[in-house]
């Protein structure tokens, strides 16, 4: 699924406790700002999933606020979230490694 080129773009990662909540939040984020979704990964956390958004810093920040607001609105617990303005080349490999696993 890594068909688009993401190196050098800012990244926003948020993790919710439900896969459905992740879809709702990423839809709100994608509508709020011009961000691309690099991947949605399910993880071992009971039933949670994490969403990786790429784009430039301002868009990622705006999309993150929209996503957290949407998650709170449907009552999903936010496990963790972070925005990295300029991920290093090393972190790029770490980010892309777990997608589609």
């Amino acid at each position: 699924m890594v068909d688009r080129e993401y190196t050098g773009q800012a990244i926003g990662v948020f993790e919710l406790d439900g896969l459905m909540a992740c879809y709702v939040a990423l839809d709100a984020a994608a509508k709020a700002a011009n961000v691309q979704i690099q991947g949605v990964e399910r993880n071992r956390l009971k039933s949670g999933a994490c969403v990786k958004m790429r784009g430039d810093v301002a868009n990622v920040k705006a999309a993150m606020e929209a996503a957290l607001a949407a998650a709170e609105q449907i009552g999903a617990k936010v496990t963790a979230w972070t925005v990295i303005a300029a991920p290093d080349a090393g972190t790029e490999a770490g980010i892309a490694m777990t997608i589609g696993k």
Binding site: M20, A21, V24, L26, A30, I74
Partner: peptide
């Protein structure tokens, strides 16, 4: 049921994910 919702007017990114 843990959760149920309707997403109307899905964005391009969501459509791409559901296609997969």
């Amino acid at each position: 049921v843990c959760g149920a919702c309707v997403i109307s007017g899905p964005s391009e990114e969501l459509i791409r994910l559901v296609e997969q």
